[in-house]
Amino acid sequence: MSNKKNKEIEISDSESDDELDNAESDRDSDLDSDGNYIGDKELQADFEGRNPEDCDFHGIKQLLRQLFLKSNVDLGALAEIIISQNYVGSVVKQCLDDGQEDDDEDDDGSDGVFGITTVINITKRKDENCIQQIRTLLTTLAEENANDKTKALVNKILSDDSQHVGLIINERILNIPAAISVPLFASLQSEVEKAVKKNMPYAFRYLIWICKTYNTGDESSEILFANQEEKPLLDEALASFDVDVTEQADLSQWDYEGGALTPCRKILIFDGSKFNNLVRLLKEEVENV
Results as ranks from 00 to 15, higher is better:
208 I>S: 06
132 Q>T: 07
214 Y>D: 11
130 C>N: 08
115 G>C: 00
197 K>N: 15
193 E>T: 12
143 E>W: 08
119 V>H: 04
180 I>H: 09
216 T>Y: 08
190 S>C: 08
143 E>D: 14
123 T>L: 02
148 D>W: 11
148 D>M: 12
140 T>Q: 14
202 Y>M: 04
200 M>H: 10
160 D>K: 11
150 T>V: 11
147 N>V: 08
187 S>H: 13
150 T>P: 05
129 N>Q: 15
117 T>M: 12
138 L>V: 03
121 N>K: 01
214 Y>S: 14
211 C>E: 11
147 N>E: 04
153 L>H: 02
190 S>N: 13
148 D>R: 13
213 T>K: 08
149 K>W: 10
186 A>P: 06
199 N>M: 11
158 L>W: 04
145 N>E: 07
205 R>K: 15
120 I>W: 02
123 T>R: 02
216 T>R: 10
154 V>R: 12
212 K>C: 12
123 T>H: 07
132 Q>M: 10
170 N>C: 07
189 Q>H: 12
189 Q>P: 03
212 K>N: 13
212 K>D: 15
175 N>I: 09
152 A>N: 09
216 T>V: 07
148 D>C: 13
130 C>K: 05
164 H>I: 02
139 T>V: 11
121 N>M: 08
118 T>E: 01
147 N>C: 10
132 Q>N: 03
193 E>P: 00
154 V>W: 05
177 P>E: 07
119 V>F: 00
176 I>L: 10
142 A>F: 05
126 K>M: 10
206 Y>G: 02
137 L>W: 08
131 I>C: 07
190 S>T: 15
165 V>M: 03
